[in-house]
Design a protein around this nucleic acid. Structure first.
Lengths: 205, 205
DNA sequence: TGTAGAACTCTACAGGCGTTGAATTCCTTG
DNA sequence: CAAGGAATTCAACGCCTGTAGAGTTCTACA
């Protein structure tokens, strides 16, 4: 980033303002979602004039996309599970998923995506593309079974719900449960969604 | 426009406008969430002046709460499962949950709550109170085990994720999967969350 | 030192928002 | 027909939004 600028302008390349804006934007999107977050609010939080936000990022939509560039690839969530072997698949994936939410910077980004995706088509498309490309795609390829796409979305549904209840709704006791406990509780679910017999459950109705 | 009026014109005490506003509001909240839905838009959809909306409902927040009064009690979702017996618990609950989403009027309300809860504290509190009182409470009491609250929120996480992936994100193939298939796939998960061994899964790390 | 250009701010526009209170239409009732 | 009250509309206020463009400050380099 600083190397790209070279020599120009006021403390070129390292103003700090750009990063402050990005951080404030990510936090605002995470807290309020795309619609409620305002450029003026982000600018104030960053100690900067609102016009500067647009000067750097062009528009609110572009700022949103810039603020939500994931620092980690979600693909490794599944890849780590594959490495651990088929029996550990569910547990390792759940653990990796939960640990990915631990760093505040990541959590804030994921919360922003989740919150915004509920009412913003752009955000929802981002999540869908991301999941399909980085998570569901690898799962589907690796499993090599015909109903792999359904299995992948089932896993996705459990993870999305887990994230919402734990991090956004903060419903107890799930919100405060330890990662170990959740791995024990949810790991077998994911394990079964990926490798188990989906049609063999007890029929109801 | 005002086809509901018909020949009788305006009857004091009962006009179709109120219901039209409620329907339009519910649809708007379901489609856009609380923040994005606008009173002006709702009024236009209902073929009515914006001021009339406020005249009837006082404020946007009150309108939201009026529009989201659930037509069915979610309590029966669990009660039907209890009646069916402990072995059928998961399957019956999943089926009842999915069938509850089928009627368009109910679906629209549930989508509105879900969408709005992501960025609106009032909506989130409504959902939390509703779940705790109508679903988690009965589950906790009936199960009579010490970790019942955790089990209840685990079930909640799976259901919230299912609803979001299937009805809001519309991710395939889960979005188009039949109720029977989903009962087979998710029923055992719920069954285990409620009555199974939570700590006995494969450990991962 | 002069100047180019980046970093940053000021001011303003145009539009949408929730909300308000007075004015108007319309039906019912006496 | 006249009065009363409910149903509904009109017009406007004040606020906030995203955005645009001109203007200002500052730093790096010739």
């Amino acid at each position: 980033m600083s190397a790209a600028q070279g020599k120009t302008g006021r403390r070129p390349g390292e103003s700090g303002a750009r990063e402050a804006i990005l951080a404030a934007a990510t936090a605002a999107f995470a807290e309020a979602g795309y619609d409620r977050a305002t450029i003026r609010g982000i600018a104030t939080a960053a100690g900067v004039d609102p016009a500067l936000v647009l000067h750097y990022f062009g528009s609110k939509k572009d700022l949103f996309e810039a603020a939500l560039e994931l620092p980690v690839s979600p693909r490794q969530i599944f890849e780590r599970g594959v490495v651990a072997g088929p029996d550990q698949l569910g547990a390792v994936i759940v653990r990796t998923f939960l640990e990915a939410w631990e760093p505040p910077e990541t959590r804030v980004r994921l919360m922003a995506m989740l919150r915004s995706a509920m009412t913003n088509d752009t955000a929802m498309a981002m999540i869908r593309d991301l999941l399909v490309r980085e998570v569901f795609g690898p799962i589907t390829q690796t499993l090599g079974v015909p109903d792999a796409p359904l299995r992948a979305t089932l896993v996705g549904s459990q993870f999305v719900g887990l994230a919402i209840i734990r991090y956004i709704g903060r419903l107890e006791p799930l919100a405060s449960a330890s990662i170990d406990d959740l791995v024990s509780a949810i790991g077998p679910t994911v394990q079964r969604y990926l490798t188990g017999e989906l049609g063999g459950g007890t029929q109801g109705g």
